[in-house]
Design a protein around this nucleic acid. Structure first.
Lengths: 197, 197
DNA sequence: AGTCCTTTTTAACATATGTAAAAGGATTCC
DNA sequence: GGAATCCTTTTACATATGTTAAAAAGGACT
């Protein structure tokens, strides 16, 4: 890595992502940069482990990860995050309670971590940063509402076809067992659905 | 109603609700009050109809309502709102797109409507109002995430028992057909579950 | 190539939920 | 009070998904 390059350079994809929601002054960007750090994690390792309180919001710069937890001893995938998206365990981030969920890489990955306590402090000085994250999480909230409709009122087969259409990448990059639990069905059931095609 | 009473008086339960998230200056409260209005709706009427863009956030002061929509011609209840809670069709509120959902009363009800375009304008002048609603919707987001876990990884019977435990009121006040679609099952299936007890 | 380990598929059976139709109860309205 | 309507339950049958176990396929490593 070029030692001359300002740290900003590494954060470029993140700031580009931010701009789709809200423009930031260069002052805000500097302060944001000061609370970000990059981290590299090999495949199949935990980025955040189960039981710890979520104090970092991650931006996926390279690779792929999933949020997972155990329900009655069974490994369940709650969500995936591909490049150029944010991931956090919001139920812990917003409540301050320890999370029952972990984040695990599914490929060698690179993240930009945003320290959330520092971020929440910045909200006081920079309303535009607070607004940025308000908008980011509002959009995430809307996605979650759509996901409920999708889960509750479509069959597993319809949901699988949706996934193929909307995230064909995932099918190539993620073991089917994780896809199955993400869809809310067993591996066996997913296999049966796939056998139809 | 006492004509001497300031309009504030009517809004007391709403401001009390706000305080559980964020305190407001009296200036902010005055401005909030200026964008609120009360509305009374008889039982089984639409408060907001399908197809219109959501531009009002409602606080239920009295009564009970549900958000519903049609999926393949079948009436589906997405959520209920009891007294002292907010209800909005967030997928429309935050995107500006027409909503496929409506809000219907299930009893004679009384609401406080908050005009959302005016609210979003207030955000610029009053960061504490923006913060208040950020926190409100963050909490709603967390609830929605929990709901997904509940739907996806519990059987209909477990979800029904959860509902009895957590919202026994609903069972008394809402027709079972709405409960059934809220739980993601048919009336017949709910009837079978109930027959076990 | 061969072994080990993980992932995916297949099979057989059990269970839960859906669909359609009918009957019984409850409520509303005149 | 009676008719009409809506709500809930029941029945019978169809289908989807779960469970368990075993086989097959694929990857990783020596």
């Amino acid at each position: 890595m070029n030692p001359e390059a300002p740290f900003h350079t590494n954060l470029q994809p993140l700031f580009q992502y931010f701009e789709t929601f809200q423009n930031l002054s260069s002052d805000s960007k500097d302060r944001m940069a000061s609370i970000c750090s990059t981290v590299q994690i090999p495949k199949n390792k935990d980025l955040q482990s189960i039981g710890h309180t979520c104090r970092t919001i991650y931006f996926v710069r390279k690779g792929l990860c999933r949020v997972y937890y155990y329900k009655k001893g069974v490994d369940i995938t709650e969500s995936f995050a591909l490049e150029n998206s944010l991931i956090a365990r919001v139920e812990s981030l917003f409540t301050g309670k320890p999370s029952k969920k972990g984040i695990q890489t599914l490929e060698d990955s690179e993240f930009i971590g945003i320290a959330s306590p520092a971020l929440f402090d910045l909200y006081d000085q920079f309303p535009e940063i607070e607004r940025l994250f308000r908008k980011i999480f509002e959009a995430a909230y809307v996605e979650t509402v759509h996901r409920i409709e999708n889960i509750q009122f479509h069959t597993a087969e319809e949901r699988y076809n949706d996934l193929i259409k909307n995230s064909p990448d995932l099918l190539q990059r993620v073991p089917l067992k994780h896809i199955a639990s993400y869809l809310g069905i067993t591996q066996v059931s997913l296999s049966r659905i796939r056998a139809k095609y």
